[in-house]
């Protein structure tokens, strides 16, 4: 907190992420093998001269996370990360810490811990980022995204103020907390040779699971549950805000009343030729409630938005499948 004043937002110089194919695969293996436990870890690599970050190594933290972002600020996580980095440096890999990865289910990754960790990291290293592996489609599809906190968010974070006018000043809404970065998958020459040498292997039934009717059932239920709980937290925060708005309203009407009174009084005094009373005196008499922080509201809104998008996607898939199958079945029999 004390060092905050010296920190300033710096425009990141790396605008895309290059991920080695081995990193992609081992990351996905680790997160999906351990699902439903959530895991995070360190991404190591280097910045190249063409404005992107090359990720060459990924090391998961030893223990699963109880919530997203839990390991980023923990002492054991940081220590593990440091030890890995030192050992790799001995191998003459010019790698540095670049960011984290985190497995999550849909919008649940928007936690204060994750954001706090990422914000602190971005203030020390302007190119820090986070890879989010969305487990909502585990076993069906790979959903991996790279995020960085936006300029507006970091601006507000440095000021530490989250009132509506601060958000407005930083042009920050719940929709632009994060900037998404494009991810490029890079194959080493030898890996490419190997891949080219593989025969086109037949895909198994499991890989087509996305095509099964109702294959999204469990995950949709889980997403809806997450949505409920986010909406609950949102409402809790909103209640506080509504309370503030009502209090504010009350005070404002009191002030207007007082002003009205003072105005009449002054008119009276003017008629009598007396000196007018100060019309700004109300500032000392009434105390307006101050607006509560919009921080939690913003995070919950963002999580709800991501969750809603994922649920809509699952439902769209389900409807497509359902209609296609129904038409096939019923048409086949009527012939």
């Amino acid at each position: 907190m004390a060092t905050k004043q010296t920190k300033k937002y710096q425009q990141p110089t790396a605008t895309s992420i290059n991920v080695e194919s081995s990193v992609l695969l081992s990351l996905i293996r680790h997160t999906s093998e351990n699902y439903p436990s959530l895991f995070s870890g360190a991404l190591l690599g280097f910045e190249d001269d063409e404005g992107s970050i090359d990720v060459t190594h990924a090391y998961p933290f030893p223990y699963p996370d109880q919530y997203e972002g839990g390991s980023f600020r923990s002492r054991s996580g940081a220590k593990y990360q440091q030890e890995i980095l030192e050992s790799l440096k001995k191998l003459e890999y010019g790698v540095e810490f670049q960011g984290w990865f985190q497995s999550t289910v849909s919008g649940n990754f928007v936690t204060t811990q994750l954001i706090e960790g990422l914000a602190q990291q971005q203030l020390t290293n302007k190119n820090a980022f986070i890879l989010i592996h969305n487990m909502a489609s585990v076993g069906k599809e790979v959903e991996l995204k790279a995020f960085r906190l936006s300029e507006g968010f970091i601006g507000a974070y440095i000021d530490g103020k989250w009132k509506s006018k601060d958000l407005e000043a930083n042009k920050l809404t719940y929709l632009n907390i994060f900037d998404e970065l494009p991810i490029n998958i890079h194959n080493q020459h030898l890996v490419n040779l190997y891949l080219a040498g593989l025969d086109n292997e037949a895909k198994g039934e499991k890989e087509f699971d996305v095509l099964n009717l109702s294959s999204n059932q469990n995950v949709t239920a889980q997403l809806l549950e997450s949505l409920y709980s986010q909406v609950d937290s949102y409402n809790y925060d909103q209640n506080n805000f509504n309370y503030y708005q009502r209090q504010h309203q009350k005070e404002v009407s009191k002030i207007t009343q007082w002003k009205q009174q003072r105005k009449l009084e002054n008119l009276e005094r003017a008629k009598r030729g007396d000196k007018e009373l100060d019309t700004e005196e109300w500032r000392g008499i009434f105390k307006l409630p101050s607006e509560p922080s919009r921080y939690n509201n913003m995070l919950h809104s963002n999580a709800i938005d991501v969750l809603a998008d994922d649920i809509l996607k699952k439902c769209d898939e389900e409807l497509t499948k359902s209609f296609a199958i129904e038409r096939k079945l019923t048409a086949g029999d009527s012939q």
């Binding site: 996905i28 999906s32 069906k140 790979v142 890079h186 198994g204 890989e207």
Partner: peptide, 21 residues
Amino acid sequence: SSVTEKIALNNLREKSVNTAS
């Protein structure tokens, strides 16, 4: 070892013919 990883590998194989990234 996992289906998701298999899907990613298939993805790699299909997309990286002739290109390094």
